[in-house]
């Protein structure tokens, strides 16, 4: 293959890769993240508070569900973020496996527990909603089961990433699991259309008008955008902390190496303990 044809293949993806790799520099990432994060946190907290207070006290009760419908303002955003968070986890995993982006592994490891938390929130509020409305805390229908599988995928990722002595191997294994689990996302989305489920089909879709009263749609929009900002802020804060913790480890190792340098012969012994 001639150099020019190689270049032709490489060129189209050259530009976006350069874009992401700007943040491969941890110092630049930390500076950018510390500027964005306070705003993201503030937006998230304020929008979520407005959405939840509106939903709890001011939105109308449903004609057949009564006030139990207010659980929707938590359950629906949590469910959306459980899936969206997994998509982010998968994108980070792809960026790690294909492009070896140094921040993607750290971000994936941080998104895992937060996604699991939101999935747990979705399952718990769904249960609290299902008992008075359906008459059951839990049923094994396709929607509920596929979301439970999503929760276990998150737990598996959390465990796998931390299971190896060599963090690189853990990140690699976690990324592969995360990408395998992506097949579950369309199953969750379309389970209510493909099979008979106890769970109702989607109220809000990209193609059609939502079958929800406008006075209930607004607080839902606020809490959904608010929770999304909270999720992003949490992931960003976690990644910042992880970058700093990595730098602390590097500094400690460097300091230990310097200290051993002054003792002749000890550096070799240290070398065997410190992974390259």
């Amino acid at each position: 293959m001639s150099p020019s044809s190689v270049k032709a293949i490489a060129e189209p993806r050259g530009a976006p890769r350069r874009g992401w790799h700007r943040f491969a520099n941890p110092g630049r990432f930390l500076r950018a993240a510390s500027k964005v994060q306070p705003w993201l946190t503030a937006f998230g907290v304020v929008l979520t508070a407005v959405g939840l207070i509106w939903g709890l006290f001011f939105a109308p009760a449903d004609w057949q569900q009564g006030d139990a419908v207010r659980i929707m303002y938590i359950h629906v955003p949590a469910a959306w973020l459980a899936s969206a968070g997994y998509l982010m986890l998968a994108l980070c995993s792809a960026a790690s496996l294909v492009w070896r982006h140094p921040l993607a592994d750290l971000a994936a490891a941080e998104i895992g527990p937060i996604g699991a938390g939101f999935t747990a929130l979705c399952l718990a509020t769904g249960s609290l909603w299902g008992k008075p409305m359906w008459g059951a805390w839990w049923v094994w229908d396709a929607r509920l089961t596929s979301v439970l599988v999503l929760f276990f995928l998150y737990l598996g990722h959390i465990t796998l990433v931390r299971a190896f002595d060599d963090p690189t191997r853990g990140y690699r294994a976690g990324a592969i699991l995360a990408l395998l689990g992506v097949v579950n996302l369309p199953i969750i989305k379309f389970s209510v259309d493909w099979w008979n489920t106890l769970h109702q089909p989607a109220t809000i879709s990209l193609t059609g008008a939502p079958s929800m009263y406008i006075g209930m749609l607004w607080p839902l929009a606020f809490s959904a955008v608010g929770y999304a900002c909270v999720f992003a802020a949490l992931a960003l804060a976690g990644t910042r902390a992880a970058v700093m913790e990595r730098r602390i480890r590097a500094l400690l190792l460097a300091e230990a190496a310097r200290a051993e340098d002054s003792v002749p012969g000890a550096a070799d012994a240290l070398e065997t303990q410190v992974p390259a």
Binding site: P60, D62, W134, G135, S211
Partner: peptide, 14 residues
């Protein structure tokens, strides 16, 4: 078990 539909509507509207 009761299955509720995907419509959300206030009592007065209903």
């Amino acid at each position: 078990l009761a299955k509720h539909d995907e419509t959300y509507m206030p009592k007065d509207v209903a």
